[in-house]
Design a protein around this nucleic acid. Structure first.
Lengths: 253, 253
DNA sequence: CGCACTGTTGATCCAGCTCAACTTAAGTGG
DNA sequence: CCACTTAAGTTGAGCTGGATCAACAGTGCG
């Protein structure tokens, strides 16, 4: 609770710069290591730090903190958000294991959003200046980071379309499919998973009211597209979920 | 009209790799050169190519073209857009002189969107593989590109908030202010300019109906926030324009 | 075991969409 | 250079998807 106490605990129990071993990490095939050859991996490991896990609700960083590092998610889940001038929250993204968070803020030297843990989560910290230096020597690493950011931009463009053109059902369906795909990528079940975020966060992210999201979950369930119990979700009819908005009116028994 | 004829014209009249001289370019202070020292500028100029200008409606590239280059806008204006599975267009961005377009597609080796000229426009082509090589040797260039992409991500996050939380007036006001700021950055008038894009494109970009955008222009004009005549716009009350959505109901005579 | 958070459901309302008619501007060919 | 076509923009009227307000049901943490 007390900041200085937290600091002591962190530095006392878990050395801040504990050695990171990507080879022993199950995320190896989906995370940063895929960008570098095995003999260069140790160089990457050298600059990475692993901190103590974050508890639900704890911040990884806050908007206006100075930008120093990007982070690879090891476990758990995080959300990024920012506040408008009027003070209301906009959830801007969700981050699952194997994904990189914190790439905003490179240009301003300050983070432009805040990131907090949705559940107990741990991350590998990658000091960005070190990463830039390393990228000078490892072309594939430089390329990988350009590609990562490019993919982030692409995803944002897709979201742009979702928010500007698609109805509420589509948006929710899209999110479910996105989470599903990201699970599958890690070798987990694509059809059965637990959502790490609340209905509130989903609604906020998708530009909808909580009530609307809730109703849509219910409707999807009634139409046997999914089975949902709280945050536990099972995808029953992936095809139909992809086509929500296409066959808008479910004229089925 | 005939592709091969166009090709001849291009290569005949204007060599594809015509030397680019950033020092003689008025965009020098807002474009790429700001990333490199003057003695390294020639290296950058070396890899850039200037093609023939694009006419209104011509494509710079199309979605699924192989990704080879990014482009710095020299003059005119461009829009990027993509098509949904149902075939309708989503305008994803507008690009003005001094700005870089084409940074999607790095990860896939194919462009994920199309870019076409809104009016006669010219660009400097920057082959991306060459740029990566150069970035290996010029840290500030590498950093600048990371920063550029980071800023793109930031802008997308802001747009996310705009689309998910803000009312139609806010969205239009925001766009006008954005165009204004980008004009100012180039040393042009911040308060008086010509919009390069149609009402249709504005509406599409902001996730609104054309009619709504048109009505809002009219309303802004009635309330003396702007003076608008077709695409010609003058900002009369910048403060009020920033606060649209704050003082929603204009209880004024 | 109680208080606060998270989620669901119902009823009502309104911002912005759709449809429609019309005006103005911009090409285009004779 | 003007008549004609087509695209771009504006205005009006009415409809609707999703927001808002409200009440209630789990759920879980301290």
């Amino acid at each position: 609770m007390n900041p200085s106490l937290t600091l002591v605990t962190r530095q006392g129990n878990l050395p801040v710069s504990q050695h990171v071993s990507c080879n022993e990490c199950s995320l190896n095939p989906v995370c940063l290591p895929l960008a570098v050859s095995s003999d260069q991996l140790s160089e990457l490991e050298q600059i990475m730090k692993r901190g103590r896990p974050l508890k639900r609700g704890e911040h990884l960083y806050r908007a206006s903190d100075t930008f120093e590092s990007v982070y690879a998610v090891r476990s758990g889940a995080l959300k990024s958000y920012s506040l408008s001038e009027e003070g209301d929250e906009q959830v801007t993204g969700f981050y699952l294991p194997g994904e990189i968070v914190g790439m905003d803020g490179i240009s301003t030297a300050h983070h432009m959003s805040s990131v907090k843990a949705l559940e107990t989560a741990s991350v590998c910290e990658i000091p960005f200046d070190k990463l830039e230096q390393l990228s000078q020597r490892i072309p594939s690493l430089q390329h990988h980071f350009f590609a990562l950011m490019s993919r982030e931009i692409q995803a944002d463009r897709e979201l742009h379309m979702l928010l500007s053109k698609k109805a509420a059902d589509d948006r929710v369906a899209h999110l479910l499919l996105s989470i599903s795909a990201r699970h599958q990528r890690r070798g987990l079940s694509a059809s059965s998973f637990r959502l790490p975020m609340s209905r509130y966060d989903i609604a906020n992210y998708l530009g909808l009211a909580v009530e609307t999201v809730s109703r849509i979950f219910t409707r999807f369930q009634q139409n046997s597209l999914i089975r949902a119990e709280g945050r536990e979700v099972e995808i029953l009819d992936r095809g139909a979920l992809c086509n929500v908005g296409r066959a808008e009116t479910q004229r089925r028994a």
